[in-house]
Simulated assay, not measured.
Amino acid sequence: MELVADRLATVRERIRAVAARANRAAEEITLLAVSKRQSAEAIRAAYAAGQRAFAESYVQEAMEKQAQLCDLDITWHFIGRIQTNKTRQIARQFAWVHGLCDPEHARRLHEQRPPDQPPLAVCVQVNLSGEHSKGGLSPAALPDLLEVCARSARLRVRGLMTLPAPATTEEAQRAPFRSLRILRDHMATPERPLDCLSMGMSEDLEAAILEGSTLVRIGTAIFGPRPTSMSGPMRGQP
């Protein structure tokens, strides 16, 4: 598991280097370790190396890991597609949700968030390319969803998230991130600053940070290739 610590150090150095290029402080950028399909032992190794924020995409798998790792002070983010029959578990088990794009899901998360927990931090996913294979709503639909969230006291919209199509050059990678930043600037208000831009992964974190990302979602560069299957009770999750 020493390799996890080494990879984390490399990712942090990448963030520092590109933050300097962008005349930004590296501390402005949150590193979110995407741990789906990774073992609890790998998460412990990353935690031992100083990582505190982890992201999961499959509810049952995440809940099993949370039980195994309950002795650790982890902030859990949900980054998968939200299923209606999973909103109660998401509302109860996570501090953040990336990928909200349905008003009905927003209402359910609000209603099912326990009142003794802080409001659920939310990033709304925007589909800038119109790809049917990608989740997210269109920019035109964003104002309506933001209004639904504004009426939901147990949700706190922190910002926007996107998952663009792969690109091979830095400029091509930067274009959709720039579009999301411009959209955020247009939609932000003093009451709703949308201070989080959740964008950038292992292959394009530099482009995202150059365009203003405040949170990068990194899996492969930290944990290595994702296992194609899990042994034990987590096998077979969607």
Rank of each mutant, 00 (worst) to 15 (best):
Y47H: 12
Y47G: 03
A49L: 01
A49K: 01
A49E: 04
A49V: 05
G50S: 08
A53T: 15
A55S: 15
V59W: 12
M63K: 14
E64Q: 14
K65L: 12
Q66Y: 07
Q68A: 12
L69T: 14
L69S: 07
L69C: 14
C70N: 15
D71S: 13
L72A: 15
T75G: 11
T75R: 13
W76N: 12
H77N: 14
H77Y: 04
I79E: 03
I79L: 10
R81L: 06
I82V: 09
N85A: 11
K86G: 15
K86M: 11
A91L: 08
R92W: 05
F94V: 02
A95G: 10
A95M: 00
A95R: 01
A95D: 07
H98Y: 01
C101E: 01
D102K: 00
P103G: 05
E104N: 10
E104Q: 10
A106M: 02
A106Q: 02
A106G: 06
R107V: 03
R108D: 07
R108H: 06
H110Y: 05
Q112C: 06
Q112Y: 04
P114G: 07
P114S: 09
P114I: 02
P115H: 15
P118G: 08
P119R: 04
P119V: 06
L120A: 01
L120N: 04
A121Y: 02
V122K: 00
V122H: 04
V122I: 07
C123S: 01
Q125E: 02
N127G: 08
S129M: 11
G130A: 10
K134F: 07
K134A: 05
L137V: 12
S138L: 11
P139D: 12
A141P: 09
P143A: 11
D144N: 10
L145A: 03
L145S: 06
V148L: 09
V148G: 10
C149H: 07
A150D: 13
S152C: 12
S152M: 13
A153N: 13
R154K: 14
R154P: 04
L155I: 11
R156A: 15
R158H: 10
R158T: 08
G159K: 09
L160N: 00
L163I: 08
L163T: 05
A167T: 00
A167I: 02
A167V: 00
T168W: 10
T168S: 14
E171C: 09
R174G: 03
P176R: 01
S179D: 05
I182A: 14
I182R: 08
L183S: 01
L183V: 00
R184L: 02
D185C: 08
D185W: 08
D185P: 05
